[in-house]
Design a protein around this nucleic acid. Structure first.
Lengths: 154, 154
DNA sequence: GAGGTTGACACAAGATATTGTGTTTTTTCT
DNA sequence: AGAAAAAACACAATATCTTGTGTCAACCTC
């Protein structure tokens, strides 16, 4: 840790305390050359998550972008889109992955929507999976129905 | 240092290395509860960032000053100037640099604007890069168009 | 201006981190 | 794709940091 005053490379820790409820550690250091003291913070690496699109392009995970898609699917449905997006962000942080394909991201959204609101789910899926023809759409609806009846059987 | 995966408060250091020529320390930690590993950085307390102008003059990075420029470029455009300035400040903090040339700062703004709103981008660029003649302006617009058509190809 | 809160400072005993060396994996660059 | 750089991993011997307890000063808030 280079001293900000004289640039010397070595310093010793004089005090060290957790801060922010354990989110990081503040240390008070003293330069071994000039004896000046300074403060440092040890912080979690800011995990930036990249979304890998179908063409291989990487872009930073953009919460508001995802929100737009979810908002569309949940329009006039009793589902809180923001909550869903937050949940996803949370899950991404927790898995400590820095990359996810747009496909996987879509699956995550669908998994959550399927549980909460099936109309929103089908809307989202129809965009995400690009249901272009009646057949794929129908087969998705059928598998949805199967899931429903299985659930009722519980 | 709370584990980002399970939230447990205690972890041990598994590896620790100076990085950035001693500007900070990267540590690899392992959660004592779930054994997951994560990375932390120990960094100097909020260092002041200096902007080096073309004539060599240094001045403290001034957020509101930068905001003025971005506001002009984003006038009546669907872009949140403040958000952009915040993002830049964030990035400056994260890179742990204490100095940046005004040119690099301008490039950062342009990189962000190019992604968000191309009209704002061209406006900002025309001021920042001092497009004095039609030719440079045109060539910038052409490369912008190329980017657009590549994007549509996805 | 009394009271609460936060950062700096001190000290000491126990617990943990650092650093060289070397390999492997991942990421970045061309 | 292939090379180069950066990060993750391992290990071991040594040196340093952490944490409780307590004091003091600076800064808000009411």
């Amino acid at each position: 840790m280079n001293c900000p005053a004289c640039g010397f490379a070595e310093s010793k820790v004089v005090d060290s305390r957790p801060v922010n409820d354990g989110a990081s550690i503040r240390r008070r250091r003293e330069c071994l050359q000039c004896q000046k003291r300074f403060t440092t913070f040890e912080i979690m690496e800011s995990v930036q998550i990249f979304v890998i699109k179908k063409n291989g392009e990487k872009q930073l995970f953009d919460k508001s972008k995802l929100l737009v898609g979810v908002l569309k699917a949940t329009q006039k449905r009793p589902v809180n889109a923001e909550e869903i997006v937050n949940q996803i962000e949370q899950e991404l942080q927790n898995t400590l992955r820095h990359e996810i394909t747009s496909g996987e991201l879509g699956e995550m959204v669908m998994d959550i929507l399927r549980e909460r609101d099936e109309v929103a789910y089908v809307r989202f899926a129809s965009v995400y999976r690009e249901f272009n023809d009646i057949d794929t759409f129908m087969s998705e609806l059928k598998s949805l129905k199967r899931r429903q009846s299985r659930k009722k059987a519980d």
